[in-house]
Design a protein around this nucleic acid. Structure first.
Lengths: 226, 226
DNA sequence: TTATCTATTTTATTAAAACAAAAAAAATCA
DNA sequence: TGATTTTTTTTGTTTTAATAAAATAGATAA
């Protein structure tokens, strides 16, 4: 409580990455499998099995052999603390250092491991207490609270309604550059004209101007509200 | 030349710390001993012996058994690149995040290992191309050039002359807090009134106002020009 | 100049995090 | 259900960076 980070300074770089990955993978609610973690971290299931045991001992995950893992309350706190750092640094890179939104992820992956609660709280103030990162993802506050926007993927949104883009998947720079090209940004207005049943691609109007066809995979990675 | 950092991304955290330490220890000109490195890095001579061999293989140091080490040209470039990062981050922490000069070292030690030339060059621009860090140490430019000010320790400065503080040793937070208390900062004017031969302490006037007695060890860590 | 002391290096271990190969459990399919 | 496939775990190695203890080189002193 007092010093949010002191408690977490026993965690190595690698451990932090596992906790963060498990956090992201369990956003769907289910237990996370060994292979899912291995794929995400570009490592092998054997390595994951090992690390999982260690993290279970440290009480940051619940682990039942062969059944997958999920974060404990403590584990979630740690994950949110890392996510907070990651997203605040992303804002800094875009707002202050003129990075494009497709260029920040890799550097933020490094910066998120810097240990200094003081620095992050000051950074947040310096940035004017932003609520979202450059991709529209919410930034946990200093107590680790995070406010989710109830958005859905464009691929599941209703037809012929005015939609607003609230966030896009941040992991893939190519997607972000593609969105730049077609003029989709956070806050853009979209309207679905037609869903092509054959391949689930979507024809839409962007900001009442351009008509575009986007593939299902693109539509999956754009979150909208109506 | 093109990407200053890409060439250096083969270096681990630990290796970078060794190179940086050897750089600082060899500022006096002589070869650096195994024990000196071990003391500085709070590790054991046996560990240093191991690492030294690896760094010599990587051609960043010249190493003759039992005779100590010094940096090659390549090694010096790497050291200067790390120093550049460290000092720019220190400026950021003080100027933008309101850290005091005694609070920045530890965090900068972490930040200096972040690999992104782009970020550092942008950071430098964002900070207005500062030439010195908060302790008065010069910041290497993007080509790794560094401009030393020909200063000497207060303990070796002449008596009864107007002196200007150009830098102070950054490693010790307690010294920095002490200097805050007695009103010595970068740019302060000092005049030595008397050198006490018995213990080499120095009586001086600070900014034409306060008279103070400082110990030799303090005077060793304040660099001045006249 | 030999003996002693100190600094350095070598050797053998340890811990973290990874991997491949083998073994075991769970899931799927026929 | 039983057989096969897939997933997960175990076992045994590897690499990096550290350590302690032992061996050796260099410096110092008698």
């Amino acid at each position: 409580m007092d010093n949010f980070e002191l408690n977490y300074s026993n965690f190595s770089h690698a451990e932090e990455n596992y906790v963060k990955t498990i956090y992201h993978l369990s956003e769907k609610g289910e237990d996370v499998s060994t292979t899912a973690i291995a794929d995400e971290l570009k490592t092998k299931p054997a390595s994951v099995s090992d690390m999982i045991k260690k993290l279970a001992q440290k009480k940051v995950i619940n682990y039942v052999k062969y059944k997958g893992v999920n974060l404990t309350e403590e584990g979630e706190k740690i994950a949110l603390w890392i996510v907070r750092k990651h997203r605040l640094w992303e804002v800094f890179l875009v707002e202050k250092l003129k990075f494009n939104w497709d260029e920040v992820h890799e550097v933020a992956e490094q910066l998120e491991h810097i240990k200094s609660k003081r620095m992050i709280d000051q950074l947040e103030e310096f940035l004017g207490f932003p609520k979202f990162d450059p991709h529209g993802d919410p930034i946990p506050d200093k107590e680790g609270k995070i406010h989710f926007i109830p958005a859905k993927p464009l691929s599941e949104a209703p037809i012929a309604k005015t939609l607003k883009v609230v966030s896009v998947s941040d992991g893939n720079p190519e997607l972000l550059r593609y969105l730049d090209k077609v003029g989709v940004a956070i806050g853009s207005q979209l309207e679905i004209v037609e869903k092509i049943a054959f391949d689930d691609s979507i024809e839409l109007i962007i900001d009442d101007r351009d008509t575009r066809l986007v593939s299902k995979i693109v539509a999956d990675n754009i979150l909208v509200v109506d």
